[in-house]
Design a protein around this nucleic acid. Structure first.
Lengths: 99, 99
DNA sequence: ACTTACGGTAAGTCATGTCTTACCAACACG
DNA sequence: CGTGTTGGTAAGACATGACTTACCGTAAGT
């Protein structure tokens, strides 16, 4: 999740969500140089968010759906915990809490 | 979403998911000083992820569920796009693509 | 084989962010 | 009305990270 902190990396992720692409194509839609994109892709790859498949001199990067699912699960857990805590507090109040 | 990049802030968010708390209580469960927590809370507050309610000398922070929902929506959109792209490519192949 | 395109890596610069200590304001309580 | 507690802010040290240019390896095509 820390891998998606950088706006450029989020842009890369959103770009790859629309379909796999080689490095140059990704870089052409971004305001940074190609080596910068390579470095970002390394971070995303280390985080397991993307995978690369060599195809001749090109490397086709694609988004890894299971990693996105894991991220969504984290959000869901936070959401559920927050709701449970809210419900618990609501019960306390409805049971006659002193404020 | 960039606000949740820092591990300490994620820990704060997870802590607040279990229920509202004043600053000192949050800081007592973390390996950083109280001012650091205050600064993190400011970032989270600016991002709309948490809200504060003054209560005497204390300030009770609580997680903002709608912000969590927005985060989850972002994940869902990424997920849906990735699946749609995958399905589109699968259709191309099944229709007899030359690769 | 030579050339060209693609992409990863190294080195270096520069900005951003995180943490600390020190200080100050505000509310509650004796 | 002083005293203690709570918490936000300032200043500064320090690390981390993002970007650039330059370079090199590798595969494809003529």
């Amino acid at each position: 999740m820390a891998a998606l902190a950088d706006p450029t990396r989020r842009a890369i992720a959103e770009s790859l969500a629309k379909g796999p692409a080689p490095v140059s194509q990704i870089a052409s839609n971004l305001p940074v140089s190609r080596p910068a994109v390579s470095q970002h892709l390394k971070v995303l790859s280390d985080a397991g968010l993307v995978t690369a498949e060599p195809q001749g001199t090109r490397r086709i990067y694609r988004l890894e759906p299971v990693a996105i699912a894991a991220l969504r699960d984290w959000c869901d857990r936070l959401w559920d915990d927050a709701l449970a805590a809210f419900a618990a507090q609501a019960n306390l109040i409805s049971n006659g809490e002193s404020q």
